[in-house]
Computed example of a mutant assay.
Amino acid sequence: MELRTIDPRNYEAALELSVRPDQADLVAPVVKSLAEAYVYGEQAWPRLVYDDDQLVGFVMAFLDIPWTDPDDTDRRSGLWRLNIAAAQQGRGYGSFAVEAVCAEIRARGGTEAYVTYHAREGGPAAFYAKLGFRPTGEVVDGETVAVRALG
């Protein structure tokens, strides 16, 4: 498994990635993520997840962004998006992508990684808990906020 940058050779395939239909309300499509990556520039870190030469997913980190307000001094880094293709789920690609995001944040001097998710039945809460994320008690835009220490 490896992460690759998005470029003219692979962006169209990235746009075709889709999660299972029952997960569509949990994560934005890749096209929205790429638009946000453009708007946020250096604060967004979008990557594609490959297994050999097969595209299996998309992941995007946010790096040192103001948390709730553009003028906020509370700046955080973490997992912004995770889209693993419906047919590829359950094979470790999501865990690999999350660990890669955490490694990138750590390499940039970060000590914590954040994630937000919809806390509903069939949602990703158990997945993130298994990877060491713990709810902070915060809710942002209706999503649970969780944090993982990177030390």
Rank of each mutant, 00 (worst) to 15 (best):
E138I: 03
E112Y: 06
P70K: 02
Q43E: 02
R9W: 01
P29R: 11
K32E: 13
D22K: 12
A149Y: 00
Q23G: 04
E99N: 06
Y50S: 10
R81H: 12
V31K: 13
Q88K: 08
G132A: 03
D69S: 12
L17A: 07
D51L: 15
Y114N: 11
E12Y: 11
S33D: 13
A113D: 03
R47T: 04
A28L: 10
D71F: 05
V56C: 15
F58K: 12
G122S: 11
L79C: 04
E138S: 08
W45V: 15
A37W: 03
E121F: 02
D71S: 07
Y40I: 02
S33E: 10
V145A: 09
A125G: 05
E36K: 13
A44H: 09
R120W: 09
S18K: 15
D7S: 06
R76P: 04
V139W: 06
S33V: 01
L82C: 09
M60H: 05
E12S: 06
T144P: 13
F127S: 10
R134P: 00
A113P: 01
N10F: 06
W67H: 12
P46W: 03
P124L: 06
A87T: 13
F133E: 01
G110Y: 07
A86S: 10
D52A: 08
M60Q: 14
P135K: 03
Q54S: 08
A126R: 08
H118Y: 03
V98C: 03
L63H: 01
G57L: 14
R134C: 01
Y93W: 10
R108M: 09
A97F: 07
P66Q: 02
R148P: 02
P135L: 04
G78K: 08
P46L: 09
I105L: 10
Y50I: 07
W45N: 05
V140L: 09
D25G: 01
A103K: 13
D64T: 03
P29E: 00
V101E: 11
R81C: 00
R148C: 00
L150M: 09
S18T: 14
W45G: 09
F96V: 15
D72C: 07
L26F: 14
G94K: 07
G57H: 00
I105H: 10
E2R: 15
F96N: 01
D7V: 03
Y50A: 09
A37D: 12
F127A: 02
R47V: 13
E138Y: 05
I65K: 15
A87L: 02
V56L: 13
V31L: 15
D69L: 06
D22V: 13
K32Q: 12
D52M: 07
G92C: 07
P66L: 04
V31C: 13
Y11C: 00
R76W: 03
P70D: 10
